[in-house]
């Protein structure tokens, strides 16, 4: 019930932003539409959990997420500059390859978000995930070392340590 109410308010907020103003007829249609949507599909948005945490736990999580957003865009900007440099070279000097990188994260949501963040950063691209060994297969445009620890440090550790703190 709590999760349906939460989904209802999020969908209603998105509706109001897209409608552009708050009037009676807009609100009536929006409330009906978001009631139906949240009643049917709220389990796609949230998962039920029985753990009881203090409110400070969630507060810390939100603060870390807000801090992580500029860090991510900074990293993405730097790697976009690196890829741009390759595009304008007279003879492209990159050495693309597919590397296997093991991860230490356990949470399935954190793994999904990590894979998406790796794909979002220019220069690295997640191809697959090995469930047995907990390893990502990453297509990387600048393979500089064959050593696994060094690869791990350069590709995923900058996001992994943040996600480990957020999803602990």
């Amino acid at each position: 019930m709590k999760r349906k109410a939460f989904a209802f308010f999020i969908i209603l907020a998105v509706w109001i932003i897209f409608a552009g103003d708050v009037e009676n007829d807009v609100l009536i249609v929006g409330v009906i539409a978001s009631l139906v949507t949240s009643w049917l599909y709220s389990d796609l948005l949230f998962r039920s959990s029985n753990r009881k945490r203090k409110w400070s736990y969630y507060f810390r999580k939100i603060v870390y997420i807000l801090l992580f957003i500029p860090v991510f865009f900074y990293e993405a900007f730097i790697s976009a500059l690196k890829v741009s440099k390759h595009a304008f070279e007279k003879k492209p000097t990159f050495s693309p390859g597919i590397v296997k990188v093991k991860t230490t994260l356990k949470n399935i949501t954190a793994l999904t978000i990590l894979a998406n963040l790796i794909t979002l950063t220019p220069g690295t691209l997640t191809l697959d995930f090995d469930m047995k060994e907990k390893a990502f297969f990453i297509h990387w445009i600048d393979v500089t070392t064959a050593e696994e620890a060094e690869t791990r440090k350069q590709v995923i550790e900058r996001f992994e340590k943040w996600l480990e703190v957020i999803f602990q």
Partner: peptide, 21 residues
Amino acid sequence: GLIRFPDVYTRIHASAVVLTI
């Protein structure tokens, strides 16, 4: 990058620049 890079995967890296940044 899309014109100059050699194969599919490196071109995807080039297109990730426009979509992310």
